[in-house]
């Protein structure tokens, strides 16, 4: 098990180094940083001085090593747009996106998995079939549309929940959380729902398909023959055998959610990373883009490593690998 862990974590580090290399390439070679940073009236001496100060005269390898070293400490330099530290910019925005994505993911699992199980065991009944049918609607509705409808119904018409912003936030060190205040939690409901609706239906359909497959397995029949009751049969024996693809999908989707969050954040004026990234792209703010690239891939790689480890925890057959 230890060798397995070392191997997985080693793989993850290798992937991160590769991603950092590409981030470094755009950082260093997409235009001349000095030209983009100094004002037009700067003299050649000033430019050379800045070039030396930024370490741009060092060898390629030395620069890469320095970039990785800084990135590992969360240091991505200054934003070219407003001269603020990229790390600070991201630290301000990241918690909002992260909380939104995590809540949306939890919602999709907590609602999607039971719905999947019930539509599988109720196959042929009217309620299961109508759920399955309506899930197609959930899969095909774009999330900005869902967001707008949610705002219209729950915020504008009913006035139950806020339709924009993050509500009050509490500072825990550099992390700002909306989970500890009532207004923060209320503000989270609609964006999280609109972001998770697609995931809920996706998880539900996946679990349903996997359950139908597993329920036909011999070991399910044999479990029934030894007197295992329905509930244990479905939620213990069958569901556990369906979890692998769900975990894989969830990990992949968290990455996608961060991307989708861009749209949702716009609709709900959510002060997250999506807005920051949009601005960075508009202003060719390379340090912010490089940092964004590194952070998103870090999340992806971490999640996928955790998935590999979760596989081994769930399935004893994979532990030897």
């Amino acid at each position: 098990m230890l060798a397995f862990l070392v191997k997985r974590v080693g793989n993850a580090i290798l992937v991160m180094l590769t991603v950092a290399f590409f981030a470094f390439l755009i950082f260093r070679f997409l235009g001349d940083p000095v030209e983009l940073m100094v004002n037009e009236s700067a003299t050649q001496v000033e430019r050379d001085e800045l070039r030396a100060r930024l370490g741009l005269n060092d060898s390629f390898l030395a620069q890469y090593v320095r970039f990785v070293g800084h990135a590992a400490q969360g240091e991505f330099g200054l934003s070219w747009r407003n001269q603020q530290s990229v790390a600070t910019l991201i630290a301000e925005r990241f918690p909002a996106t992260f909380e939104l994505v995590i809540i949306a993911t939890l919602l999709s699992l907590l609602i999607g998995i039971p719905l999947g199980v019930f539509t599988a065991i109720g196959r042929g009944r009217w309620w299961a079939e109508s759920l399955q049918l309506s899930s197609i609607v959930g899969v095909s509705l774009p999330s900005f549309f869902v967001g707008i409808i949610l705002i219209l119904v729950f915020s504008v018409s009913l006035g139950w929940l806020p339709g924009y912003g993050r509500g009050e936030v509490v500072k825990l060190g550099w992390w700002s959380t909306g989970l500890l205040t009532a207004s923060g939690r209320a503000a989270l409901v609609l964006p999280a729902l609109s972001l998770s609706l697609f995931q809920i239906t996706l998880v539900m359909r996946l679990v349903r398909a996997e359950m139908l497959e597993t329920l036909r397995a011999d070991f399910i029949k044999f479990a029934r023959a030894r007197g295992v009751k329905h509930r244990a049969l479905w939620f213990r024996h069958a569901l556990k055998n369906c979890l692998m693809p769900v975990i894989t999908l969830t990990a992949m989707q968290v990455g996608n959610l961060i991307a989708f969050a861009l749209v949702t954040e716009t609709v709900f004026q959510w002060p997250g990373m999506g807005m920051l990234f949009m601005q960075a792209v508009t202003f060719v703010d390379i340090p912010v883009m490089a940092a964004y690239l590194c952070i998103v891939s870090f999340i992806f790689v971490t999640l996928n490593t955790l998935v590999d480890i979760a596989y081994a925890v769930i399935d004893p057959r994979l532990r030897a690998a």
Binding site: A225, R226, G227, H237, K240, R317
Partner: peptide
């Protein structure tokens, strides 16, 4: 089932739940 009548099926490879 299990208490008054037990069962043995053809394929022992698939009769047991692989995850337990």
């Amino acid at each position: 089932r299990g208490r008054m009548v037990g069962a043995i099926f053809q394929d022992p490879l698939t009769s047991l739940n692989p995850l337990f």
